[in-house]
């Protein structure tokens, strides 16, 4: 019944392992972008699980209600944005570190942010350190344009220099970014994403928006897994890797499939919602009231913000 070509080739099997050319280790160049992208997505999902674990660890911020944490973060973010003195920004960042330690957030994650964020913000703000953007006292010489130099219609100075005023602005920008990112990090690392989303409602974010974002977050994971399965199914039947063009074609058809699945899923989810009485209006369970500890946390954030703004002379 079974055609001859389907029978296992015992002779061929015997040669596997004895033939070194079968395990050459040669890798095609530029053909592994799909695998790389998908393993990146898989890492993101794994990160989600790690975040979930950190959010349920016993720590100071984990005990605070998500709404209080969001409110406290919002107050401190405003203070960080308005604070003019670098010392104020260092104080807020220092507070974040203390809270991170008390909440058992792995300092590795903080360090990772501190190493990457200043670098990117520095690239953005660097031109403002030059006398072309911020005139002031020169501390370093960069380029000599000579008299009468122009960039299009704009006249250029004789010398391009780094100014002390420009350096101050750049340093303050980097510190501000660092303080803001640290604030967001300690809040998100100690709160489950789902709880954080539902708490947005108490800050006045429309219910429908919260529901849509929550559903997007929920089904993104499912679709990433579908994409991963799709790739694994192909990989398990791939004997000879195709050309980059063939891989690109496969990616395009995979995207089409995922898009189709997305639409199908959307219809089915809507049916499931209708089946349980959904009539177009999002309804949620009301949260219990804030406890004294939660209110104290918000008060503490407000106090720190007030002190930071007073020190920066915002109210003068």
């Amino acid at each position: 019944m079974i055609p001859e070509w389907m029978r296992p080739d015992i002779a061929e099997r015997a040669t596997v392992g004895a033939e070194p050319a079968l395990v050459s280790g040669r890798r095609g160049h530029g053909r592994y972008f799909v695998r790389k992208a998908l393993s990146g997505f898989a890492r993101a999902i794994a990160q989600d699980v790690v975040a979930d674990r950190a959010a349920s660890a016993p720590g100071l911020l984990q005990r605070i209600d998500a709404r209080a944490k969001l409110l406290g973060m919002a107050i401190l973010l405003v203070a960080s944005t308005l604070a003019a003195k670098p010392l104020s920004l260092v104080t807020i960042t220092g507070l974040c570190v203390a809270l991170a330690v008390a909440s058992r957030i792995p300092l590795r994650s903080l360090l990772r942010v501190w190493l990457s964020v200043p670098l990117f913000s520095l690239v953005i703000i660097l031109p403002s350190a030059l006398n072309v953007v911020t005139p002031g006292e020169a501390v370093a010489h960069v380029w000599h344009f000579g008299p009468g130099a122009h960039l299009g219609p704009w006249p250029l100075p004789v010398d391009m220099t780094v100014t002390s005023e420009g350096l101050f602005i750049a340093a303050r920008f980097v510190l501000r970014t660092l303080a803001c990112v640290s604030l967001v990090l300690i809040t998100t690392a100690t709160t489950r994403p789902t709880v954080l989303l539902s708490s947005l409602r108490s800050l006045g974010v429309p219910k429908v928006f919260v529901m849509v974002v929550a559903m997007m977050y929920r089904y993104l994971t499912l679709l990433i897994r579908t994409a991963e399965d799709l790739h694994f199914a192909k990989m398990s039947r791939t004997i000879e890797p195709g050309s980059t063009r063939a891989e690109q074609r496969w990616v395009a058809s995979g995207m089409g499939f995922i898009f189709h699945r997305c639409r199908q899923l959307g219809d089915e989810v809507y049916q499931a919602m209708v089946s349980r009485g959904y009539e177009g209006e999002a309804r949620f369970l009301h949260h219990a009231g804030l406890r004294s500890g939660d209110i104290a946390y918000v008060g503490f954030c407000a106090l720190v913000s007030a002190a930071v703004l007073a020190a920066s002379g915002v109210w003068r």
Partner: peptide, 22 residues
């Protein structure tokens, strides 16, 4: 397909969805 039916952020929200709609 249970994934179709479980669209809320948490298990608690999921169980509360139907009664809230009513």
């Amino acid at each position: 397909n249970s994934d179709v039916q479980l669209f809320s952020p948490t298990v608690e929200d999921e169980i509360a969805f139907g009664p809230l709609q009513l």
